[in-house]
Amino acid sequence: MGKIVCLQALSPEQESLIQKTAPGYEIIQGKAKEIDPAIVRQAEILLGWSKLLEEPALHAESPLRWVQVRSAGIDMLPLERLEQKSVLLTNASGVHAIPITEMIFGFLLSHTRYLHTAGKQQLQQIWKKPANNTLGELHGQTMLIVGVGEIGSETARIAKAFGMRVTGIRRSGRNLPYVDHMYTMDGLQQAVADADIVVNILPATDETLHIFDEKLFAAFKPGMFFVNVGRGQTVNTDALVQSLENGQVAFAGLDVFEEEPLPAGHPLWAMENVLITPHIAGDTERYDGRVFDIFLENLKAYAAGHELPRNRVDYKIKY
């Protein structure tokens, strides 16, 4: 009997669905630090991943064949070892589309509609309006989404509801609904120069490391907004700080950083034109349910001996 080790708690209904979908499997649930490594060593399928499980899961004699991770990013996994063992890897792409999209617009509205400043003033019981005619709008602005996947597609849809023009960057350059113009990565510098708002949703790969560097920030239209909900490693933090200081970037909403937590005393903490959140953009009370839906769809295919239909990771491009 094969074993499915689940690192997230399952409801009785979810456990029953797994049993019906893959009746020949034993289901073991628990947190990574609590599960017996000997059990992990026998797992054929893992729902979730933890570095604590790496050695038993990837032991030469383990039967591991498929890992469904609970994150969209897979840069923290031992990809070379997984590939060498021919383990199927699927991620949670799509789970984050709604919460991260809402976070993106939360960042932007907090700045354009004075909410960030008003919230701080409220704690000091200060009634102070902004200068006349200084409140901004999203309507009519051009938003560039860098890395248009599941999240970017949902962001584009909502941007259109705000009456925005939307451009995008994706590897293939293939257009998508709600995107007025799609560039390939080669067009990134041209695209940022035409945008009022740049939203970074890029994953961390060798190609994207520090792609937002001093040269790219210099190509920004002066006074534009920058939102990072992708990966911290895609941005050269020193270059971002410089762009915020010289006004090239008027406002930044940042959920991810090169070093997390952001170190105490870092210049970004004290900047009035920066809003920082502690890497929570993808969090939602509905997270586990959405991950399970992806897992169950893939499990149906796996049990039937078919290709996994959702979110199969390509080890060559690392997403």
Rank of each mutant, 00 (worst) to 15 (best):
L188T: 04
A38E: 14
H306G: 14
W127N: 11
I169F: 05
F251G: 01
G106S: 10
I201K: 00
Q189F: 08
Q141A: 11
L138R: 00
M1E: 12
A32D: 08
N311K: 02
K51A: 15
I201V: 12
N228G: 11
A270Q: 11
A204V: 00
P267S: 14
A22G: 02
M185S: 12
H59R: 08
E285N: 12
T208N: 06
R165E: 15
L82M: 12
L7E: 00
V5E: 02
A72E: 01
F162Y: 14
T284H: 07
A22D: 07
L82Y: 03
Q68V: 10
E44Y: 05
V5T: 09
D36C: 09
S153W: 02
S243R: 03
Q189W: 06
N132S: 11
D186S: 10
P222T: 04
E214C: 08
H96P: 02
L275T: 06
V235F: 03
S93P: 04
A270R: 08
P267N: 13
F226L: 07
P130I: 14
Q42S: 09
V199F: 03
H96Q: 09
A193T: 11
G253H: 05
G173C: 09
S243I: 02
L144P: 02
F217W: 07
E15A: 13
L46V: 08
A22C: 11
A131L: 15
G232K: 03
Y319G: 02
Y114H: 15
Q14R: 07
Y319C: 05
N298Q: 14
Y178V: 09
P278K: 08
I74T: 14
I104N: 00
I197N: 03
T208A: 04
E83F: 05
A22R: 02
K3L: 14
I201Y: 02
P261Q: 11
F226R: 00
A60V: 11
D75L: 05
G24C: 08
T205Q: 05
I280Q: 09
I4T: 03
R157S: 15
